[in-house]
Amino acid sequence: MTLLNMFLDTAAANSAANYLPIGIQIFFAIGFVATMLVLSNFMGPKRKTSDKLETFASGIETHGDARQPMAIKYFLVAILFVLFDVEVIFFYPYAVNFKELGWAGFGEIVLFVAFFLAGFVYIIKKGALNWED
């Protein structure tokens, strides 16, 4: 339970107003991007031909739709990322409170890392990250 005390203590002093500048910046950025897009749209010439509107394939004709099933590897990487990234998230609150938790917490995190590594070794040994095939 001590794990998140830290969060709350600061959260008490930290209200939603702290994030307000970020909101402002988002509006600013959106405004900037939108303006630029609209402006460049007006500025450029518009002489469209059917060849120009084709997708580019190094000069040869394009064949079919690009959206075909891709190598499963990429998908696998995405899934593994999701899994491991979420595990990484667990390290953050631990890292912040690491000193208060002391050796007991360290022992538990070692266990956690052990599980992490078990999964990691497993995916490597199973060839999920083999690209040379």
Binding site: F56, T62, R67, K73, Y74, A78
Partner: peptide, 17 residues
């Protein structure tokens, strides 16, 4: 919807994540 783009995007995404 270009094969090169899509492949590059997949590569890029995989790399970044």
């Amino acid at each position: 919807n270009n094969k090169f783009s899509l492949l590059a995007a997949l590569r890029g995404a995989s790399q970044v994540i």
